[in-house]
Nucleic acid binder design. Sequence first.
DNA 1: CTGCTGACTTTCT
DNA 2: AAGAAAGCCAGCA
Length: 144
Amino acid sequence: MARTDEAEAFFHAVYAAVQEIPPGKVTSYGHIAKLIGTPQRPRQVGLCLKHLPTDTSSRFHHANVPWQRVINAKGVISPRSQPSGSLNQAAALEAEGVTVTTGALGELSVDFAEFGWFPRILPSEAAMGMVPESDDDGDGSEEG
DNA sequence: CTGCTGACTTTCT
DNA sequence: AAGAAAGCCAGCA
């Protein structure tokens, strides 16, 4: 009962978060999961996109949900996301202006340092990553 | 109804 | 630094 209802809300939250991604930018499943308040369920985010209806009659569908901008934390597009015999996702990203790098294994990777879309992490997350005691290593993970 | 899988991430070793 | 394991929960057989 409530379980399915919650799932629907979860799906809805995911699609909404994905739509928040601006063109020419990409983000990771974990980040989406965090934004919607479920940092421990990155896989479910993927499931949402997988079950994303192509029917434009639905509230969310492949046309209005830029699922292509969602990739894994490694900055590499999941091979399962590729349509049969076509690298549409990468092409779509390039169309947005995202530079997709093709690895030797044929996998597609995106530079988070350049196209990584990280609007604002949860307050606790920001505090966690901001450890004054910890020495700086010059990660330079700021992006405006 | 039961069990495994999966468009993943985080943490320990 | 790199590798292995755990965790989460919906969907499918």
